[in-house]
Structure formats: structure tokens, C-alpha cells
Design a protein around this nucleic acid. Structure first.
Lengths: 346, 346
DNA sequence: CCGCTTCGTCGAAACGCTTCGACGCCGATT
DNA sequence: AATCGGCGTCGAAGCGTTTCGACGAAGCGG
């Protein structure tokens, strides 16, 4: 492997000159530059990332820390990653994903403190998240996806759940629905302080109240069976329901299955809206689901851009931004039929 | 940030002694070791990864290169990643995922040649894959998931598709099915040299032939609509079919939907087996799918272990290994009813 | 035509660690 | 008693860059 020395020797210049050609930190004449570039070409020279990082105290590597549970990454998370990777790459940075689970806080600390990462984007932030504390103590530039309860002094990008729920409810109410059930994540998930679940819950209550409607909410396990059970519970609690708004992407297939099982048709008997769902998943269902599509790739891009800004101007202001999901109307919503317009026929 | 120098000074030993305590490269007396460890503790010392890497010419970082398309990572890939991460972590290595798309070959070369990665695991390998060539030229220790057409001189771990298909077909034939249709990925995907699709296709032909049955195969786009269309085509080609074996995890929901749409019940009228499918996805369907479950986490672990072996003994033999998927019987398969036992009633 | 920038280049000193050769010490071997 | 080999430790030489101060050569206004 050729080093800078070899290049310098071949081009008959000093090592520092080669470095300046590479980094542009000082002006170099065209003639010299050409000589150096030719030498690099000839030797297939590639700078050694470690040496560079050591000397400049910048690795040009950004970390994207994502807990990897067995669920896998949906299209939403993937869009997020690709958006972030593209933005990093455009700025000349590498983006590496590190699958840090919740348990290995020490691992996290080590990773952050070894000065291998110039900055870090943390995904799936909980309302009370120790990882944030660890990262702040390690003094590494940090941007969150999602937010903790107390966001003072933190930079984050997150989905505007308030707005998203309002829009979803608005869509259903606009179609004529009055009895709308909200299917959230499980009670256990809520208890862990999972922000999206809690925020959408509050947003749902307030949106429904604003329309003068009563909010009905059900918790569902993250599984098809959980969705089934939730729908049963929903009918027990509100027999005349005509629409379901579901936060739980995993449970939604169970909900649809159970609806079919009860001889109810979507969207004629019951309308279904899926929250924070990718088009890919929405199209899997029959009929395709009307859904609130998350701005995945934009979130990723914005997070990285904010992070890069922190690297340049360390004293800069925090970046705090919310993006709503977009309503995409597909086949699972329609005006309510039976119970509303024709009486309780079914 | 404290350096080794600071630790050495505080512990009143030389820098090299501190280093030996850390790496264990030479014996150090218990007394000295304790002094050093105490000093480290007091200063919150953390070794600088760059400096370490530069001096030792080992980064202790392994790369997992995965193309990220918009589809997202299924539970299968996720299991793979977590298996790999666990194995790497156990050996004191970091595992970073790098989302390298197909297009950025130069990006790949740069990544591999900058000596930041001690070794690399490459996922989603095609039969003819330029990335493999690039990585080989960069002279970086390499293990593939999947295989190229010519595997000489390469290490890989892959699914034993031959065996997996044989088992799936065996299951269906054992239940009494004779007319079995195989739904593969799209013709376009086949044309790109996507190994799993090609290998399962061949395996299906040979397995069916061994049973004295005629292999019927349909290509399906990777979407629910594709699955629908494929099922229609299947019925056109083999009206008396009683079982579907599907390689296309995305299309399977379309297949199920179309089956229901035609008034056919699963598994009573038609049995369905899904290939290389995670339990999570299998449970999404109603009824839950009988599936061939991929050995995701084991694949990841084995790949990393093989890679680590390469790092230690560079001259060592190649590691080439195939693992079959496990048959998990759920609700989507049963003995054929109507057409076989009761004549063509439906 | 003289001093003064500005430009382009060089040499050397970091950056924080690993690793090699050397050395003193001590107990064991002849 | 002289010799030997381990053990534990030290000092110094890298690893391949970046970056800083210095310096000669032009280019400029006066």
C-alpha cells in the first residue's frame, strides 16, 4: 500500500505538499497539483483513514445508532437510513450504522468515547432515555430522532404526531365517521415511555374532543393476534364503530383479518387508517391501506445536516424540528354506510 | 481527554507498560498492573481508537456491507445482523453496517482500501457480483453471504436452497399434493442473476422430477399485485393445482388475497408454503403460514467467525458452508381435499 | 528600485498508540 | 562462584497523516 511518502517522492515534492493537494488547506500551483495527482494515480494511492483521523482529530465518520430488535427494520426506518447515508456521503462523510441494543450502555459509552465517531444520530429515542445521557457525557455531537421528555439543550428531528393524528382524524370525520377507535401499541410499550405511542394517544384525545367526539382507545400487542384481540375489544367497547385508526403497524394485519372474519368489509363497513406506515406495507393489504406516510428519508437527511452543522460551529444553536406524516388515501377508507345512513342493518 | 501519557505519569510507570497492561502483549506484575488500572480509573482513561489502529495496523472494526433498497430489512436480515454483531462483540470487535448500494462501486473501493475495516462481510451477493471483485482487489479479508457463480478462493455462508426446497416439496407431497406451483421472483430479478431465485428454481425442478411430478413455475413481481397476477397465471396454467410454494415474500400477501377472492380457502382448497420467511412475517397472515425459516442469526454468527479466523491465519483455508432453512408447520398447509379425494367438485 | 504582501513550498513537530530491543534483577543450573 | 535464562520494565522508533512556522520568489505601489 502506497503512502504519502511514496507519492511525494515520485512527484518530487514534500509530503506536506501532497497533503495540501489532498485537503486543499493551502493553495498549490496547478503544475504541482498535476504532478501530485499523476503520482497518486500511478501508485493507486489511497489515504490511510486512521492516520488521517489521528492527525486531524476528525474521523469523518458519523454513527447512526439504532436498536435492532427482532422485529426488523420497516421501510420507514430504511428510508430514514438511506436519506441519512445520502446526506452524509454528499458531505464527504461515511455513515456507519451501529446496532446498539438497550442493554449495552457500557458498549455505547466505549463507542462514543473512543473518538472514532465525529458525531452521532440516535434513533428510537424513548421519553426517558439513558443513552442520551451517556452520549451527552461522552461529549459527542448528537442529534436525536424522536425526543426525550426534556429536550432542552438537545437537537432532534421527529414526526409531528399532533399534526399527523389531527389530519388522520380530520380525514375520517370529513368522510362522516363519528365513532372512531384508536388502536395503539401495547400497555407494556406505553409503560416504557415510548414517545410516539404516548404523543399520538394525547393527540387523538385532543383531536376527537375538538370535533366533539368521544375518544375510544385500545392497546394492542405488536402481533397479528394482538390486532385481532384489540378489534374484539374495540367492538365490545364501541359496537357501533365505523372507523379504526391504528398506530400499530404489526397489529394491523390482525385487525384486517378479524374484520373479514366478522363478515365486515373494508372500507364499506369499517374504514381503516394506518399511522406512520410506508407505502410498501400499505400496499400489502387488500384493499391497500389509507395511511399516514412518514417522511423517512427527509428525516434522515435533516438529522445529518443538523449534525454536520454542529461539527462546524460547536457553539451553534440546537436544531429542533417536527415533520408531519402525509395522508395518502388508498382503498381502506370511505364514507360510513350501514350504521350511519341506513340504520343498524348488519 | 486523558492519554496514555497521563496514565503513565500518574502511575509512575512508562507508557509502554501502560500499553502492555492494556493489550496483555507482555507480562506485567500484579502490583504494577493494579497501579496502572487505578490510574486509568481515576482519569477515566479510554484509549483512542485511531491512534491504536494506526500503530497496530488493526482497527478492530468489521464491516457488514448491505445494499439498502427501499424494501427495507425483513426480520430475516435483522436476525442476521444481530447474530453477526453478537459474534463480533464477543471477540472484542465492533461491527458497523454500511449501506452500500449497487451503484457506488467507487465508494466501496474507497471504503475497503482506506484500511479502516479489518474485514468485511458482504450481503446479498449476486451470481456475478462486481463488488466481490472490487473487494478482492482491495485485498481485504472477505466473507460472503450468498455466493457468486464461481466460488473458488472465496469464503461464504449461504442457505442450502437445494435442501430447503427438497424439504418443502417433500412436506407437500407427503400431504398428498401432486399439482404444486412454484412462485418465484420476477423475470427481471432472475435476469439480474439473483442466486436464491435461480437456485431454488433449479432445486424445484429437480425435486419435483424426483417425485415424478411436473414442475410448474410462475414469476411474480415483488408486490401484492404481482402475487395476485401470479396466482391467476398459475390457475390458467394448472387449473387443478392444490398447493403453492412461494419464494417471493412480498407477493405472498397478494397470493393469499387472490385465493380468498376466488372463494378458495387456505389450507382446505389450496396449501401454501412460504420460503425463507421469518416467523414474524409468517404469523402476519391468516392462517399463519407454514414456512421455511431461514437460519438468520446462525448465518451471521458463522460468517463473522469465519472472518475472524481469516484475520488470524491469513493463509488459512476458505470457509464454505450451507445451512438449510427449517420447516415450520403452521396453519397454511393440509392434505388436499376437493379435487384429489372428492373429484373436481368446486 | 525598494520594501511589503501574497503565493507556493518545505521541514519538522505533533497526534496517541504499539512494539522492538535492551537491560537489570533474581533464582536456578552447572 | 560463575553462568544462564526468564521476567518485568523502560526508552525510543515508528505508524501515515495534518498543520504550523519559515522562507524564497514573485508581484505591487510608491
Amino acid at each position: 500500500m502506497a503512502t504519502m511518502h511514496d507519492v511525494a517522492r515520485l512527484a518530487r515534492v514534500s509530503v506536506s505538499t501532497v497533503s495540501y493537494v489532498l485537503t486543499g488547506a493551502r493553495p498549490i500551483s496547478q503544475a504541482t497539483r498535476d504532478k501530485v495527482l499523476a503520482a497518486m494515480e500511478e501508485l493507486h494511492y489511497q489515504p490511510n483513514a486512521m492516520a488521517r483521523g489521528l492527525a486531524s482529530r476528525r474521523s469523518r465518520i458519523l454513527g447512526l445508532l439504532m436498536p435492532m430488535d427482532e422485529r426488523g427494520l420497516g421501510a420507514t426506518e430504511t428510508a430514514f437510513v438511506t436519506g441519512a447515508a445520502a446526506a452524509a456521503s454528499a458531505a464527504g462523510y461515511h455513515l456507519v450504522l451501529s446496532p446498539v441494543g438497550g442493554g449495552d450502555l457500557d458498549d455505547l459509552r466505549r463507542l462514543a468515547t473512543q473518538r472514532m465517531l465525529d458525531g452521532v444520530v440516535l434513533m428510537e429515542v424513548q421519553l426517558a432515555d439513558e443513552r442520551v445521557t451517556v452520549l451527552q457525557e461522552a461529549d459527542v455531537p448528537l442529534v436525536l430522532i424522536g425526543r426525550t421528555g426534556d429536550t432542552s439543550g438537545l437537537s432532534y428531528v421527529d414526526i409531528d404526531f399532533e399534526q399527523t393524528v389531527r389530519e388522520a382524524v380530520g380525514h375520517l370525520v370529513g368522510l362522516g365517521h363519528r365513532r372512531i377507535v384508536y388502536v395503539n401499541h401495547s400497555a407494556a410499550t406505553l409503560a416504557t415511555g415510548y414517545g410516539p405511542a404516548l404523543r399520538t394517544r394525547d393527540a387523538f384525545v385532543s383531536a376527537m374532543t375538538d370535533h366533539g367526539l368521544e375518544p375510544v382507545m385500545i392497546a394492542a400487542e405488536d402481533s397479528a393476534a394482538g390486532g385481532r384481540a384489540a378489534l374484539a375489544a374495540a367492538f365490545a367497547q364501541a359496537p357501533e364503530l365505523t372507523a379504526v385508526l391504528a398506530m400499530n403497524e404489526t397489529a394491523i394485519f390482525g385487525i384486517l383479518g378479524e374484520l373479514t372474519g366478522r363478515g365486515l368489509s373494508v372500507p364499506d363497513d369499517v374504514s381503516v387508517v394506518s399511522m406512520v406506515t410506508s407505502p410498501q406495507v400499505a400496499e400489502l393489504a387488500t384493499p391497500a391501506l389509507t395511511a399516514m406516510t412518514s417522511p423517512g428519508s427527509a428525516l434522515g437527511r435533516i438529522a445529518i445536516e443538523a449534525l454536520l452543522r454542529h461539527l462546524d460551529g460547536p457553539g451553534g444553536a440546537r436544531h429542533q424540528q417536527l415533520l408531519p406524516c402525509a395522508l395518502e388515501i388508498r382503498g381502506s377508507t370511505a364514507a360510513p354506510r350501514s350504521r350511519q345512513l341506513m340504520g343498524a342493518d348488519k
